[in-house]
């Protein structure tokens, strides 16, 4: 799941300073699940913005709406009539949703309301941790289902580095050393010997390093061959 966090209010107020009426647009996807941009957060932010602007003596009219997903054009299509009456949209979706929103409404300013953080897991209510970096070529088969790319501070493939102590990473004592986890898990599964092999140099071209990625599956395209 995509994990996001609301931007600092000052930044948002800065974006909206010249507007009188904005749409705070929530998304029912990942950002609802990670408690950053669902209907509840839309309500809270809406109220906070209204209060902040009242305090400044420049009232702000806040329209609130949450749609199923902002990363699908069809859902955005459904709010065109609301969008036309506002000065700008403050999108609480992840970076994908914000961009889709901007693409769907080319004549409207779309402001980002959240910082999109990472792809992660919900460990507990209010606690999230990174799990995947979308590197494009999964190595979890070799590392006992624990990703060294996303979870090792140095993304090394033949760890653990010399900073690993008591299963913790040198960069942050609250972070587990991914390689210690890999080692322990493989040891538990009786597969630790597989780590004696040197893992090959990674092909990063499947990752972001190969330029913006695009996936086309011709077998699924509606009008293939076009």
């Amino acid at each position: 799941m995509i994990i996001a966090e609301r931007k600092p209010i000052d930044e948002i107020l800065g974006f909206l300073s010249k507007h009188q009426k904005v749409l705070v647009l929530g998304c029912g996807g990942c950002v609802t699940v990670c408690l950053a941009g669902g209907e509840k957060e839309v309500g809270i932010l809406g109220s906070e913005l209204a209060m902040a602007r009242s305090k400044e003596g420049r009232p702000l009219e806040v329209v609130q709406k949450t749609i199923e997903r902002q990363c699908d054009f069809e859902y955005l299509e459904g709010i065109r009539h609301i969008v036309k009456d506002v000065d700008a949209i403050l999108s609480l979706a992840c970076g994908i949703g914000i961009q889709t929103c901007a693409e769907a409404f080319p004549d409207k300013i779309v402001w980002p309301g959240v910082n999109t953080k990472f792809l992660g897991v919900n460990l507990n209510v209010g606690v999230w941790a990174e799990r995947c970096q979308a590197c494009g070529q999964c190595v979890l088969d070799k590392t006992g289902g624990i990703c060294p790319v996303a979870r090792c501070s140095k993304s090394i493939f033949n760890g653990p580095c010399g900073g690993s102590q008591n299963g913790k990473c040198e960069v942050d004592p609250d972070t587990d050393c991914a390689w210690a986890l890999i080692h322990d898990r493989l040891a538990r599964l009786g597969e630790v010997d597989s780590l004696r092999e040197i893992m090959a140099i990674k092909d990063w071209s499947f990752s972001r390093d190969g330029g913006p990625r695009k996936l086309v599956r011709e077998d699924l395209e509606l009008e293939s061959g076009k």
Binding site: I156, N158, I198
Partner: peptide, 8 residues
């Protein structure tokens, strides 16, 4: 960077 690690 960490394109490669020390062993690599």
């Amino acid at each position: 960077v960490f394109d490669v690690d020390s062993i690599q």
